[in-house]
Design a protein around this nucleic acid. Structure first.
Lengths: 140, 140
DNA sequence: ATCTAATTTAGAATTATTCTTATTTGATAA
DNA sequence: TTATCAAATAAGAATAATTCTAAATTAGAT
């Protein structure tokens, strides 16, 4: 926690108790929480915390590049404090999602007509496959 | 259009005027429209059409595998009548989506720990960037 | 200790999507 | 051609995630 405090002090990011609680909750968290997950958790220690604070903080952290918005499902947004380039593989049978920590950026040259139109920022790959358990069930 | 009619007649899909208008609008459309885009367009010819009809039709077409839901935009869902494998790039400023027709599969070797767990079927890449118009606006 | 711009809060507003229910209709078969 | 009925439509209410508003509070600089 001390590291966290030192890190943000110098970065135009006022450290409030609510923000510290959010940072602490996110630190090392691999569960891809939603704003609501975070809100629910923070509420235990700060019962009067509001959704606006959670959303504001996530927005600020996103802009600072400290967290990533993750496209796991399109019902709600998930957040990931692990900002290493990071993809997903999804089992088409049971919808289980696993993380793929590998950077393919060097191989992903875009066609010229796209390069003319877009300045690329990042990429995210969704792999689709069948997991071991489901392979067994299907007798593959 | 006659082709479309013939195609759906035999597939448990009642052809109503509203549905035909939606199919016609989607046919060959590369703009990745949202439900609202479709609704707005159909309304010109069918002023009493409802959102429910648009959503119901999209749902039905999705289940038949005739269109794909594009999940690159966190704000709303887009639909794509092109079901051939291809990738997308979205402008993070204005949410414009373009198609990327290039197969990267050969470069996308998965890490061993993933290969042990999954039999891969396909992949889809979402690129994020900033389009020409928005670059101008930001003075980049 | 004071000051000020940034942050918080509560709740209202917005927006995409889904649901409900009564009514209408496409397509089949008499 | 017409009767039939399951499926589709329309209108608007319901839901749910996210954003906005405005007044009060506060972190951190001076």
């Amino acid at each position: 926690m001390k590291k966290i405090i030192a890190k943000y002090r110098k970065r135009d990011f006022k450290l409030t108790p609510q923000r510290l609680a959010i940072l602490k909750y996110l630190d090392g968290n691999t569960s891809h929480p939603t704003a609501d997950d975070i809100f629910t958790n923070i509420k235990k220690a700060y019962p009067t915390v509001s959704f606006a604070t959670v959303y504001n903080t996530l927005q600020a952290l996103k802009e600072k590049g400290e967290i990533l918005e993750v496209t796991i499902d399109y019902e709600k947004r998930h957040y990931d404090p692990n900002i290493a380039p990071h993809h997903h593989i999804i089992c088409t049978e049971c919808n289980k999602i696993s993380d793929v920590f590998k950077d393919y950026s060097d191989s992903l040259m875009l066609p010229n007509e796209i390069l003319k139109e877009f300045k690329t920022i990042r990429n995210h790959i969704d792999f689709y496959g069948i997991c071991k358990e489901c392979q067994k069930e299907r007798g593959d």
